Simulated assay, not measured.
Amino acid sequence: MLRIVAIIATTFPALAHAEAFQRPIPQPQSATAEWWFLAASLALLASLLAVHLLVRRR
């Protein structure tokens, strides 16, 4: 199998060259996504407070 790949790579050198890496362009966040992130952050803080109160009582 490796021999076949080597033969193809030497016969067709254009197939052996990799394409240049293109960096992905980050997309901006939408306003809806920011509100969901705010809600998730507040839920996380509330759950951490609840755990703190439960553990402190022990």
Results as ranks from 00 to 15, higher is better:
1 M>G: 08
2 L>E: 10
2 L>W: 07
3 R>F: 10
3 R>Q: 05
4 I>N: 06
4 I>L: 14
5 V>W: 03
5 V>P: 00
5 V>Q: 04
6 A>K: 02
6 A>I: 03
7 I>A: 05
8 I>T: 01
8 I>M: 06
9 A>P: 00
9 A>E: 02
9 A>V: 02
10 T>G: 01
11 T>I: 10
11 T>Q: 03
12 F>Y: 08
12 F>N: 03
12 F>M: 07
14 A>K: 08
14 A>Y: 02
15 L>W: 11
15 L>T: 07
15 L>N: 01
16 A>K: 03
17 H>L: 14
17 H>Y: 04
17 H>N: 05
17 H>Q: 11
18 A>W: 01
18 A>R: 05
19 E>H: 01
20 A>M: 01
20 A>D: 03
20 A>Y: 00
22 Q>R: 11
23 R>T: 05
23 R>C: 02
24 P>V: 08
24 P>F: 06
24 P>R: 09
25 I>F: 05
27 Q>L: 15
27 Q>P: 05
28 P>F: 08
28 P>A: 14
29 Q>C: 00
29 Q>G: 00
30 S>E: 05
30 S>L: 09
31 A>P: 03
34 E>C: 11
34 E>W: 12
35 W>M: 12
35 W>H: 08
37 F>I: 11
37 F>Q: 12
37 F>Y: 07
38 L>F: 15
38 L>G: 08
38 L>H: 06
39 A>F: 13
40 A>M: 14
41 S>G: 15
41 S>C: 12
42 L>E: 07
42 L>M: 14
43 A>R: 04
43 A>M: 13
44 L>C: 10
44 L>F: 14
44 L>S: 09
44 L>V: 13
44 L>K: 06
45 L>Q: 09
46 A>F: 15
47 S>K: 09
48 L>M: 15
50 A>Q: 12
51 V>R: 11
51 V>M: 14
52 H>G: 14
53 L>I: 13
54 L>Y: 12
54 L>R: 13
54 L>E: 07
56 R>T: 09
56 R>K: 12
56 R>Q: 07
56 R>C: 02
57 R>P: 01
